[in-house]
Structures are given as C-alpha cells and as structure tokens.
Nucleic acid binder design. Structure first.
Length: 271
DNA sequence: ATGACGATCCCAGATCGA
C-alpha cells in the first residue's frame, strides 16, 4: 500500500451478532472502518453471518466462536496476512483472535480480546470467576507490543475493567464492584504498561473527563442516569501514538433499537 | 447499585453478564 494511508479500526461488544446483525451492517455502512473487532458474538463459527458482512465489503473474517457464550470475530476489508487464536487459562474459551494486516508498508498486528467478566464477588478465594479474571489478566502480560522495526500493534476489545477514576460514574461507589476494584485496575494497568501498550483513548480524552463505553440494561433511562463505565479499550504500540488522527466513542449507539449494552469505539490512524 | 434488563439453551426457568 502507499505511504500515508488512513487506517480505521473499531471495537464493539455486540452481545449476540446474530440478534444484532442489522446494527452491525448499519454501523459498517455509516462508519466504514477498515477493521471491526466484535466480542460476545455468542455463536459457533458456522452460524456467524459472514456473508452479510462480505456483501458490504468485509470479505475477510477471523473467527473464534463458541456456543452461547463469549466469542470474538475480526472483520476486515483488507486481507489478513496471518490469523492466530490463543487459549488463556486453559479453559477452552473463545476470548482472543489475533490478525495481521499490511498497511502503508507497516505490518499491523491486531489482538481482539474478550476478558472474563469476573462474577459478582470480588474475592478470588471465594469466587472462581474472579480468580479466573485475575489469572487471565496476568497471562495477558505475554501479549506485548514487541514487533519488528517496521511493525505496529493494537490490542482492542472488552477488557471488562474500568481502570481510571473517571472511567466509572462514581469511583467511590464502585470501589467494591467488579470491574473497578483496586486489584483489577492495578493488575490491568501494570499489565498494560509492562507489556508496552499505550491507552490510546486516554491520550485523546484527558483522565479528568468522564468516558464510558457501557451502560447497564437495568437502568430505567441509561442516558438520564448516565451510570456508565469504560470497559472497552483501544491500546497501541508506541509508533501509533503519533499516527492517531481521531478517536471517538459512539455513545448514540446505546440508544439504537434493541441495542447492545456496549457501544463502538473507533480510532483512525494516518500511517 | 447485591438489580428494575437481556441473551442463551434440549422452551422455561436457570445461568450469565458487569
């Protein structure tokens, strides 16, 4: 590809891709990212509506699905150079798919993650789901930004942790709520910095401002109460900081008909 | 916020999400 190409990536926890195929189609048509990373697809690979997305130009798809739970998928208009999937915690869950694409002479590695939610009780000794989440985050330390000289890397997805005080509607009230407990936020931030990742969303929106990507289905009026959390993330290797041209959270998507409880996050780079 | 919602699956109440 030529020098100085624009590259756009989006990440979206879709909460069933079959139920919300129309929303994905509408998003792809309107926002036209080069790559879309989906989480919680909740279907087997042969049930994934790949043909519908191929019709819109997304001919390349890397799937890691399972029945009813979890599942990730990466859709692309650009051919994948490589595709890989990793198992974490030896659980056999479908929570990661890794692809590479070549853009403007750069090989871009894209990790798409769905980190375990962690259950209700934030104590690993009494809640195996929370222990699994912490172990998963610990194993993610091996996903580093180490790439070749002309390469760059992205790590995106639903990480199920809101690390900063303004990543939740009330820091004080959520300190003992799973997704914002100190052990989670510290583990996530230590893992992120240790592996060399930059929190690209927070390079654009200062930590002093509230920033959410998820709002509970249980609120009577999600927009009025605005009790959100930033659970979805776009991380990048050093080379991508200077290349970041635009970053947006598509808050309006939470108000669409039969919405996901998460909204898309979009980043554009001038590579 | 210990959930009023929503999705899934051997179709109906349990389980999961966060």
């Amino acid at each position: 590809m030529s020098r100085s190409d624009s590259f756009t990536i989006a990440t979206w926890n879709i909460n069933s891709v079959r139920l919300r195929r129309g929303l994905v189609e509408s998003f792809l048509t309107t926002h036209a990212p080069d790559v879309l990373c989906l989480q919680e697809t909740k279907c087997l690979n042969d049930q994934f509506p790949a043909k519908a997305f191929a019709k819109l130009g997304y001919e390349h798809v890397a799937l890691n699905g399972q029945k009813a739970y979890h599942g990730v998928a990466t859709l692309s208009r650009i051919p994948f150079a490589t595709v890989d999937r990793r198992d974490f915690c030896r659980m056999g869950d479908s929570r990661h798919v890794e692809t590479t694409v070549d853009v403007a002479g750069t090989r871009l590695r894209i990790h798409n993650f769905y980190v375990p939610a962690g259950g209700d009780e934030p104590h690993p000794a009494i809640n195996p789901k929370f222990a699994h989440k912490l172990q998963f985050l610990d194993e993610m330390r091996q996903i580093t930004t180490d790439t070749g000289e002309h390469d760059a890397a992205l790590l995106v997805g639903d990480l199920n942790v809101a690390p900063l005080e303004n990543d939740v509607w009330s820091h004080r009230q959520l300190l003992r709520v799973v997704s914002h407990t100190p052990v989670e936020t510290e583990t996530l931030e230590d893992m992120r910095t240790g592996a060399g990742w930059l929190d690209l969303m927070r390079l654009r929106v200062p930590p002093s401002e509230k920033l959410f990507t998820w709002w509970s289905y249980r609120a009577r009026d999600w927009a009025a109460s605005n009790r959100g959390r930033r659970l979805d993330h776009i991380w990048g290797s050093d080379a991508l900081e200077g290349a970041l041209a635009d970053m947006s959270v598509l808050t309006e998507a939470r108000g669409w008909e039969k919405p996901s409880d998460h909204v898309p996050v979009v980043a554009r780079f001038a590579l």
